[in-house]
């Protein structure tokens, strides 16, 4: 068990975005989170990563209560994420985007960076090597000096995922990675996700709208509607669950 969410609640104004949410993620699994628009999926991600504070409930990561930690503290414990609408550092290069992710692993002091000590130079050199290693791994090294905003869409996603992985997470949260992708790009994305799961041996929690992606990739699927979990299980079970069908297609369709 890597992540445990207990009785999580969050409301915005009068709207209950998340209601009594309970979830356990096991180490090494690839778990999907699906549900209609506005079901509260991204809110769950924002709660786990500390961008929102829950009204009540608990989030335990590797036996540590992270409920009230700040986003950067949570990243440092080993949870990283991507965003639904890609959030790269657009006016910076591909290399810099990766470089920034290594920031928190760097340990030299500000004084050392002003004086350019040998330790500073050593650390910077190591980081640079790590960056290029990463870019090579994701087949981006030829584009290292291109501004992130000038990448094709699929590669922006890839860069964002690579950047999240550069943070060396134990748990990776992907928020609709296939959003806005063509069929071809989506297939590449699925390969990429399988690849990183093998390569980095991490737990992945993924929000997805495309059923093809979710059914192919995930070992387990959690379905949300109106802020609550309405179903949970293996892809095959979910596919035939009337509650899920109802949530997606409206009640009429399910019982026809």
């Amino acid at each position: 068990m890597i992540l445990k969410i207990e009785n999580l609640n969050k409301s915005f104004g009068g709207l209950k975005a998340v209601k009594n949410f309970n979830l356990i993620l096991n180490e090494g699994e690839l778990c999907g989170l699906i549900g209609p628009n506005g079901a509260g999926k991204t809110t769950i991600f924002n709660l786990i990563t500390g961008f929102y504070k829950p009204d009540n409930g608990k989030i335990i990561f590797k036996n540590q209560d992270i409920t009230n930690l700040l986003p950067h503290q949570i990243v440092n414990l080993g949870i990283s994420r991507t965003f639904q609408n890609i959030r790269l550092f657009n006016n910076l290069t591909v290399l810099e985007n990766i470089l920034f992710a290594f920031n928190y692993q760097i340990n030299y002091s500000t004084v050392e960076s002003i004086l350019r000590t040998s330790n500073f130079r050593k650390v910077e050199k190591e980081i640079k090597e790590k960056c290029y290693h990463f870019l090579k791994l994701f087949d981006l090294e030829k584009k290292a000096n291109i501004l992130a905003k000038n990448l094709p869409y699929g590669e922006m996603r890839k860069l964002e995922i690579a950047r999240a992985l550069a943070l060396n997470p134990k748990l990776l949260l992907l928020d609709e990675p296939s959003c806005g992708m063509t069929i071809n790009e989506t297939s590449l994305l699925m390969d990429l996700i399988r690849f990183i799961k093998e390569e980095f041996r991490l737990t992945i929690f993924i929000i997805e709208h495309q059923m093809r992606v979710i059914m192919n990739l995930c070992e387990r699927i959690v379905v949300m509607d109106f802020g609550e979990i309405i179903a949970e299980g293996k892809p095959a079970e979910i596919q035939n669950n009337p509650k899920v069908i109802a949530a997606y297609l409206g009640r009429e369709y399910a019982y026809r």
Partner: peptide
């Protein structure tokens, strides 16, 4: 680099583990 990250996108900077 932390400052540039903040200028470019504060939320992404948080997600990079930067104490904004």
């Amino acid at each position: 680099r932390a400052l540039l990250a903040i200028r470019e996108d504060e939320n992404a900077a948080y997600a990079m583990g930067i104490d904004v």
